[in-house]
Amino acid sequence: MSTVMKIENIEAKIGEKKILKGLNLELEAGKVHAIMGPNGAGKSTLSKTIVGHYDVEVTGGDITYKGKSIIDMDPEERALEGIFLSFQHPVEIPGVNNAYFLRTALNAKRKHEGKEELNAAEFLRLMKGHLEMLGMKSDMISRSLNEGFSGGEKKRNEILQMLILEPEVIILDEIDSGLDIDALRQVSEGINKMKDGKRTFLVITHYSRILDYIEPDYIHVLKDGEVIKTAGPELVPYLEEHGYDGIKED
């Protein structure tokens, strides 16, 4: 197994509340890992910890990505290295044009990789196909970033960013929340397009519905700040039937 990210004994708190309590998790490169667990288990805190969110204070442990510790890296460094979080609640930024934002982000990444920056015309050509696939209207890219977007439009916009930035580790935090069936299908199509056996997915979810569309390789059950079980996709129906309380720790 080739490990792309290793989370070792990580402890983290938000404010005074200790949420992650010595969590261990290895992400195998090119695989889809689903993190499931009840409310308050620490799923979103885990995603915030990986991307360096300001809310989270890491009090112990380490996270290595491609063999290098990222724990002291700024959020933008982690992003440039290829870690991407699709937010559960993407923030609205009035006055920031969506296309300008996306091009700035893409060019920051290209610059980091020593590639030439794209001009506006090249960028728009790149966007066009992605917009069609996600069922996004072209005017969405000329609007302010997420401003006035419906829940589904915001999630599509997150996936659009993922498609444009082509990250290597993709964390999807409750990507299915607020999506109707059609939107879920389109968003899943976008995600599946990125599944090329090289990229790694960490799908954080309450419910198994999204896993009907994005087939997981591993299921990790998170409870009270720790991973208590790791299994294959066969665990999903068991969880459906017995809930998280029925899980026996590894």
Binding site: V51, V91, I93, G95, A105
Partner: peptide, 28 residues
């Protein structure tokens, strides 16, 4: 807004550039 700053940084945009984007957005 810290949330807006972080959102931009999480897409690889530097802290300084993110500040500039938000300040220009305010002024725009």
């Amino acid at each position: 807004d810290e949330k807006q700053l972080f959102y931009l940084q999480s897409r690889g945009i530097s802290y300084i550039e993110a500040r500039k984007i938000l300040v220009i957005a305010f002024a725009n």
